[in-house]
Nucleic acid binder design. Structure first.
Lengths: 124, 124
DNA sequence: CTGTATCCCATGTGATACTG
DNA sequence: CAGTATCACATGGGATACAG
């Protein structure tokens, strides 16, 4: 069912809120400055903490730690501790996390067209 | 081309950044607390300023004004002034704004499944 | 190496009052 | 009606130092 048909069902504020809530969830899940870079980096390949810190230019250990924890809590990322000396920790995307790929790709498709449009508009 | 194939092309930080940028654009465009509610309200039907204020429970005129201006600048919303007394102003989605519907719908589909998953996980 | 603690600042948003 | 001005506050995120 597309958006237009959805609209025909929405008449109260409560229904409208219910409609928007799942979208907000996703936006919060992949929003913020560092979530997307982390997800993309991990979808490329698994990484250890320090590797991620190097891959994602500009991120501080504080933010990396915080965001990884959030992503893990939300089931998008796996954290695996290896009993080496000193300990090493590997982060990877869960299957669930990987399932976001098609969503991100859809967003990106529109975004690419949007960039093209903006450049066209500006140079005209 | 899907994400996995994209990844095979991404080897430098610059390329990765370029990959993410269009996604960030979209997230900024529809992110924030009020953009989505406004877009949804307008995709339902055109509205005047005061009508929007009533539709979108909790928004202040300050935020409504600011967000509408941003959406207009980005070409998602049309602002039409009618020369009545006093003036009335109608806001509507542009075709471009409407083209976001399928993106939002894709995000929402994943979000709905996500909600289901969370509830299932919690009650188990 | 894998993080955590602390402090600081910018930005987004809210409250309230006001204008054309 | 359609907004704007001003002030206030919470949150996100950065810098730096430190801990296990």
């Amino acid at each position: 069912m597309n958006l237009e048909n959805k609209h025909k069902e929405i008449h109260t504020h409560q229904e409208c809120k219910t409609f928007i809530l799942p979208v907000r969830d996703v936006l919060e899940l992949i929003g913020g400055k560092w979530r997307l870079p982390i997800i993309i980096a991990l979808s490329f390949q698994n990484h250890r903490f320090k590797e991620l810190e190097r891959q994602i230019v500009g991120i501080t250990p504080r933010m990396l730690s915080k965001e990884l924890k959030d992503l893990e809590v939300n089931g998008l990322v796996n954290r695996t501790v290896f009993d080496t000396m000193p300990v090493s920790v590997e982060y990877s995307l869960t299957d669930y996390g990987k399932s976001l790929d098609k969503v991100i790709e859809t967003i990106r498709d529109w975004g690419v067209k949007h960039r093209t449009k903006i450049i066209t508009d500006e140079t005209r």
